[in-house]
C-alpha cells in the first residue's frame, strides 16, 4: 500500500549566523492535518525525501489554537501561524521558512525579544497603586471596552512586523504591534495618566513617523486587530502632543 504524502520544503539553519540550507520531507496525509502536525510527524520520522536521517526540525509552538503567538513562520512565502495553516488549503509543495525580520536561532525558530523590549519602551501597562483591595476599577462604556478588547488580543506573534516594509533587522522601527499597545493603554481611564510618556516614547527615530502606511500589517494580522486605525489614532495623538510641545509648553 502506498500512502499519500505531502512534500514539505524547509529552510534550515543550525545556528545564528551559520549558512541556511534546504531539506525536503515527505509527510503522510491525514485528515485535519496542519503544519504543526506535519512537523510533529517529521519529529517521529526525521528522514529527508532522499532517505537521509537528519536532526529533527525545530520550531516554536505552544497553544496550537492561535492564541499564544508562538508558531509564526513563513508558509509558502506568507507570514502566519503554523497551527492554523491547514495542509488541505495550502499550495503544494509546501515551503516553510523562518521569519526574516528577526534573528534566526535555529531552523524555524527566531528571537522576537525586540517586540517584548518595545513593550517596556512604551510602558505598555497600567500603573496601578498596588494589588491590594482598593475597590472596583473605573466605570467604562461597553463600546470603549469592545474597542480595547479587539486591540488587546495582540499575541505578540510578529506577523505585522514581518510583513512591514519599514521594519528591518537593522533599524529601530517599533512597528504596528507596539503602536497598537500605546493606543490600547491610552484609551484606558487609568492608563491615560501616562499617555504623554507613551507618546514621547514613539516620537523619535523608529517611532510613529517612520510608518510608511503600506498597511500590510492589518492584512496579515491573524487577530484582525485594526492596526492601521491604531496607527492613525496614535498619529493624531502625537500631532497634538507636538503642537502642545511647540506652542504651549
Amino acid at each position: 500500500m502506498t500512502e499519500k504524502t505531502t512534500t514539505i520544503k524547509i529552510k534550515r539553519q543550525d545556528k545564528p549566523g551559520s549558512p541556511s540550507y534546504w531539506q525536503t520531507f515527505e509527510v503522510p496525509d491525514k485528515p485535519f492535518a496542519n503544519i504543526i502536525s506535519c512537523l510533529m510527524d517529521i519529529q517521529k520520522t526525521p528522514t529527508t525525501e532522499d532517505g537521509k536521517t537528519v536532526n529533527p526540525v525545530t520550531w516554536d509552538c505552544n497553544c496550537l489554537e492561535e492564541v499564544c503567538g508562538s508558531c509564526t513562520m513563513l508558509i509558502n512565502g506568507q507570514v502566519r501561524q503554523a497551527c492554523t495553516a491547514l495542509v488541505d488549503n495550502l499550495k503544494k509543495p509546501i515551503v516553510l521558512e523562518p521569519m526574516s525580520k528577526f534573528p534566526v536561532l535555529r531552523d524555524l525558530q527566531v528571537d522576537r525579544e525586540r517586540m517584548f523590549d518595545n513593550l517596556k519602551k512604551v510602558k505598555a501597562w497600567i500603573e496601578i497603586d498596588g494589588s491590594h483591595d482598593i475597590g472596583a476599577g473605573p466605570i467604562m462604556p461597553d463600546q470603549d471596552r469592545a474597542k480595547r478588547y479587539v486591540m488587546s488580543e495582540c499575541m505578540t506573534c510578529g506577523c505585522c512586523l514581518e510583513a512591514c516594509p519599514q521594519f528591518t533587522q537593522d533599524n529601530s522601527f517599533l512597528g504596528a504591534a507596539t503602536f497598537n499597545q500605546v493606543r490600547l493603554f491610552n484609551l484606558h481611564p487609568s492608563g491615560e495618566m501616562k499617555k504623554e510618556d507613551r507618546l514621547d516614547a514613539i516620537m523619535g527615530e523608529g517611532g510613529i513617523t517612520d510608518c510608511g502606511n503600506a498597511q500590510v500589517c492589518v492584512e496579515v494580522c491573524p487577530k484582525n486587530i485594526p492596526l492601521t486605525e491604531s496607527i492613525a489614532d496614535i498619529s493624531r495623538q502625537t500631532t497634538w502632543q507636538m503642537i502642545k510641545n511647540l506652542l504651549i509648553k
Partner: peptide
C-alpha cells in the same frame, strides 16, 4: 476588581459595570 483595575477588557453592562 484588581484585574479590572489592571485594564482587563472585561465585558460591561449598560451602565458600565462588570
Amino acid at each position: 476588581n484588581l484585574m479590572d483595575r489592571m485594564g482587563v477588557a472585561f465585558n460591561r453592562t449598560g451602565e458600565g459595570h462588570l
